[in-house]
Amino acid sequence: MVTNATSLTRSGLSDFIIQRVSAVILALYTLVVIGFLLMTPELDYGTWVEFHAGTVMRLFSTLAVLALAAHAWIGMWTVGTDYVREHYFGQRATVFRSIYMVICVGVLFVFVAWSLQIFWRL
């Protein structure tokens, strides 16, 4: 078996399931938000904040943010291990790939932390 330390779960099957489940969560979240936008004729900042203030919506938003982070990491990791390779970059590929992954993790961490701060008013 091919081993890899940096994939989300180190299992192709687990990554496969997480990517599909997270896609369903994000699709549902998108439908809920679009449904709210369509059914709210007079949309302003107040109604938008009120929409996100309920505990259920906060939990759903948190779930969507975590799903997006997991989905994005699996996707970006796949892109990185496909294209940032020795074939193009020679022996420096591992260094470039590590830098690429650190940047991805950093961006995703900021995205999750910032989103949680907004949704839970931390």
């Binding site: 078996m1 091919v2 081993t3 890899n4 994939s7 299992s11 192709g12 496969f16 796949t78 291990t81």
Partner: peptide, 12 residues
């Protein structure tokens, strides 16, 4: 199947 359950062998 156990030999194929990694992120590369099949799932690429």
């Amino acid at each position: 199947l156990a030999e194929l359950d990694d992120p590369f062998s099949v799932f690429r």
